[in-house]
């Protein structure tokens, strides 16, 4: 990618902006609160809710936090300010999504660590978590481009939430996996069950992870390609 050497400065900027807006505080605070709730509930409830929250908390917040950052940038005009630098538009769009995915992965792992205790095998869930939040970030990015105001975005994103990440749907998917096999995130439930039951053969896992990351990359490519072809009205 042309301008790839500008990815690191773009990631640093996105991370600093998210810290200044207290996104990590929100992400990790909600994760910690949910994890403590699970510990309090304990037993079967905790066992059932854990896979739901591990994926849906980072994913749901990912949609909103990526979209919020886009709305901030649009309102402050910093998106236009970046467009008159050599920073490629693709990198500008991807950086907040990747930073959010990193934070989301940490949040998901935090929930598991608090509920189940520290177990390094659970790190295997980091790639699916990362992909889930990349996917939700792509959705957030797309929706923020569709809706001109944040309140309209909140209302407009509800169907997307229902389709992708609503915890109820996720819980249903956990209890009856075959019923929601059509959901794009259904693989994540299976991945989590596999990890809980014991990790699969290493090469198979690596292949699956590579395929998932490639899919995430394709999603990013499509979204950022749209960003590069913005019509004049979107900028004026």
């Amino acid at each position: 990618m042309s301008g790839a050497h500008r990815v690191v400065p773009a990631l640093r900027l996105a991370f600093r902006v998210q810290v200044a807006a207290r996104f990590p505080h929100v992400y990790l605070g909600v994760a910690l609160a949910l994890a403590l709730l699970l510990r309090l509930l304990g037993g079967e409830w905790s066992e059932r809710l854990l896979p739901v929250l591990v994926l849906s908390e980072p994913g749901t917040l990912g949609v909103y936090l990526v979209a919020a950052q886009r709305f901030y940038a649009r309102n402050e005009g910093t998106d236009v300010a970046l467009q008159v630098t050599p920073l490629p538009p693709r990198v500008e769009v991807v950086a907040p999504i990747l930073v959010t995915a990193f934070l989301g992965s940490v949040a998901g792992l935090l929930i598991q660590a608090v509920v189940l205790g520290v177990d390094f095998r659970l790190l295997l869930l980091a790639p699916p978590l990362f992909f889930t939040v990349v996917l939700s970030g792509v959705i957030g990015q797309h929706l923020s481009a569709v809706f001109s105001e944040f309140t309209r975005f909140i209302l407009g994103s509800i169907p997307a939430m229902l389709a992708f990440l609503l915890p109820t749907a996720t819980l249903l998917g956990w209890l009856a996996p075959s019923a929601l096999v059509w959901l794009p995130t259904q693989w994540a439930f299976a991945a989590f069950r596999t990890i809980v039951d014991g990790p699969p053969d290493g090469s198979l896992w690596a292949l699956c992870t590579a395929a998932l990351l490639a899919a995430a990359g394709a999603g990013l490519f499509l979204v950022t390609g749209r960003a590069e072809r913005r019509p004049a009205e979107a900028i004026a």
């Binding site: 400065p9 900027l13 600093r16 200044a20 910093t78």
Partner: peptide, 23 residues
């Protein structure tokens, strides 16, 4: 630009340093 399009939550120095890194 005509309007102050800055990262409002960052300091003036940070606004400049992050921008400078892209050149």
């Amino acid at each position: 630009f005509e309007l102050p399009n800055l990262y409002e939550r960052l300091s003036a120095g940070e606004n400049l340093e992050f921008y400078r890194a892209f050149f």
